[in-house]
Design a protein around this nucleic acid. Structure first.
Lengths: 224, 224
DNA sequence: TGAAATCTTACAGAAGCTGTAAGTGGTATA
DNA sequence: TATACCACTTACAGCTTCTGTAAGATTTCA
């Protein structure tokens, strides 16, 4: 069943939304704690997020921005503040849809369905800043440039993107790519990072993978 | 420059739209003949289509449906008929956005930009009914099933999808895949069709590629 | 039934991917 | 500045996957 996360603090409205989505055959998952919405959403792995704007703690806009940095999930903003300025702000932050409350259920469902359809074709595509990576084929896209990476290189880049902008330890990379924390030969990681860098530099991403001496590697996409 | 096709018969409104898009740095391409909109759009290869609903000839809805069958281009419907029913119809036919006239330019541009951003990650992805194929990697998707095809099989399927639901001649397949109309050995096509079929049948598409004796092959996605 | 078209399987050459090895270059610390 | 450690790069050979050839089986239509 398709899982939809709902971030809404008004209990009455929340119940209404849950009803609407469940009647339509979705699994509606309200977020319970507004202190740590991000963690809750990360654990939930929803296929779509419905966001209110006025929330206790972080605003819907802030959440939208944070979620869209890693962004493989579509975001629908639902709010009573429905001026053009609000709409432009939301869309500017990467929101996929902006609807004014109160919204007829049929409209909400139609827009939801459309988003899910579009994102269905993007399943397995990971984003980090301006680069995106198809984790099934390791197709890398960056400003209309495309490269198909080999499996090992792809797995390394995937890990770096998923954890971006954190440093990823060498041990973690070994677990993710070779399935064992005990790296018998550390050189193999260096060889593959070297190969990955060569491919990246071909499309103008020469400096993107940086080594942190003694610790591991980071993907740097800030200045891009 | 990003090319946007505009299908609108009211000259005044058309001019306004062209102005809006060109000021924002897009290449605005009005459709001139309403008798053969589809051909004109096919030649134009726009990155987005703005559609009016009330048109001489085919309605915007009909056009939307036709375009979305092959659908790799996002469609924005812009209309004065802005009831909920109209909106639901448009979205149901696969339209990506539905805006009521008159629409503030900033809103139109924001929605346009959002669509272009989303579809940017879908570049190279071809659709035919419920199946989609990434032409860079030959990743085939069908109802949450995924297969990565080899290059030759991918090229054949690509051709069949592009021309679906027409029959594709054997000679045409030879040109598309091997770059020569003169098929020295016809068997190689059969071998690769056989391999493609084996992969397709693994994901429930056993009967999708049909041979038309003496002519060629068709992709049948109607009953799916 | 017979001929033509289509399908299927096995096989070997070619191409690309992967890890090993060995040597070079850079950096922190005493 | 010397030394040890860490990181980088290139070449190479085994392995896997892909591709076309060949040969025989099966289907279709007259």
């Amino acid at each position: 069943m398709v899982k939809i996360a709902i971030v809404e603090d008004d209990r009455y409205l929340l119940e209404e939304l849950v009803q609407t989505f469940e009647k339509a055959g979705y699994e509606a998952c309200p977020v319970t704690s507004f202190a740590c919405v991000e963690q809750e959403l990360a654990q939930m792995h929803p296929e779509l997020v419905v966001l209110d704007v006025n929330l206790p703690g972080k605003s819907g806009y802030e959440l939208c921005k944070i979620l869209k940095a890693k962004a493989s999930v579509p975001i629908l903003i639902l709010t009573a503040r429905d001026t053009l300025t609000d709409e432009l702000t939301a869309l500017g932050l990467g929101a996929d849809e902006f609807l004014a409350k109160p919204c007829p259920p049929r409209r909400l469902l139609a827009r939801t369905q459309r988003l899910l359809q579009t994102y269905d074709r993007l399943k397995g595509v990971l984003c980090a800043g301006p680069l995106s990576l198809d984790c099934d084929t390791y197709k890398l896209m960056f400003r209309s440039e495309i490269r198909i990476l080999a499996e090992t290189e792809g797995k390394i880049l995937r890990m770096l993107m998923e954890r971006c902008p954190e440093i990823v330890g060498k041990g973690e990379l070994f677990s993710a790519v070779w399935g064992t924390e005990e790296f018998v030969d550390e050189n193999i990681l260096q060889v593959n990072v070297s190969r990955l860098r060569k491919h990246l530099s071909e499309i103008g991403l020469g400096e993107a993978v940086r080594n942190i001496r003694g610790q591991g590697y980071v993907l740097e996409v800030e200045k891009l």
